[in-house]
Design a binder for these strands. Sequence first.
DNA 1: CGTGAATATCTTGACATCAAGATACAGGAG
DNA 2: CTCCTGTATCTTGATGTCAAGATATTCACG
Lengths: 176, 176
Amino acid sequence: MSERADAVDYFVQQWAQVRPELDVTPMALIGRVSRVAVLVQAKVDAVFAEHGMQSWEFDVLATLRRAGEPYTLTPGQLDRTMMITSGTTTHRITRLEERGWVQRERDDKDRRSVRVSLTPSGLAQCDRVQEEHLANERAILEALEPDQRDSLISLMRTFALALGDRAPMEEQSPDA
Amino acid sequence: MSERADAVDYFVQQWAQVRPELDVTPMALIGRVSRVAVLVQAKVDAVFAEHGMQSWEFDVLATLRRAGEPYTLTPGQLDRTMMITSGTTTHRITRLEERGWVQRERDDKDRRSVRVSLTPSGLAQCDRVQEEHLANERAILEALEPDQRDSLISLMRTFALALGDRAPMEEQSPDA
DNA sequence: CGTGAATATCTTGACATCAAGATACAGGAG
DNA sequence: CTCCTGTATCTTGATGTCAAGATATTCACG
């Protein structure tokens, strides 16, 4: 008489019938994290699509944007922040350069390095889309009561830390 | 003086400095769901890799396995359950057929349809890997206190339902 | 200086995935 | 029976991603 069953409830119940000796409770959490991530991403993508862009494009723009003026990071900083490989970063920067939203210049201090910067057009695009994006995210979270949101944020934060997620380091050395 | 900051804490703080007028709290949840999903997936993948397989391969095998004997579903049932497109399903079945873990036969009742079944080898592979997979999932959740796990499961279930996640329908019509 | 290890980026090749459309069959209305 | 609509699967072409390695540059140490 509780609530309706979501997909994971159904999977757990199927396992109970087929292999009752198995303890599949870990699935109840891990499976849901995966499904919720996919479902949320689909809703987020929809808003970006209305603006003719992909989520990953906004991710790059927003990462540069929140770095503050002059909106410049290296490819290495980008891939560490975004949890992608260096090859993917190269590809993303090239595509965004073609759209005129970012530009590359070699760093004269360290000539191995590259400085990726938001162009005025990229900055404008980021700011233009962001409000609608945030409104969309707020709408998605309307599904939860405010105290549920707070609990969920706190628990997911604990989980993230336990999984080794950490604030990206500043350029300086960590201690003293 | 609270806990250490995870990556999302850092992003939120960056936004506060660069665009203080923006309310980015939705990110605190949606961003973490995405990052946690990626981090968890990496740990899950590692165990499958030890057995020479991909996560998506196990997903297909497990979906057939928990359907119960004769471990048979149609491609359509598979893609609805796994949240993938029909083209991806075709591709997955073909690859698994090459490995000898599933087989295809046309359905004689409805000749548009195909029956995908676990082979004895596929069944064995699924059962062989599953225990280690579940142990791995349990280890991942060790990071949380038991009551935190329960809260998180409950909240994620509410979230999943709010996002429209539902138990896949049985073959029969929904009512009476 | 010169040499080797470390670092930063890019290249290459493979691959899973998707969107859109093609193909084949089913089932009902006339 | 015929046609038309809906369903089930597969095909095609594009794309984003990764792993592994290639290239260029820096830096420490002798």
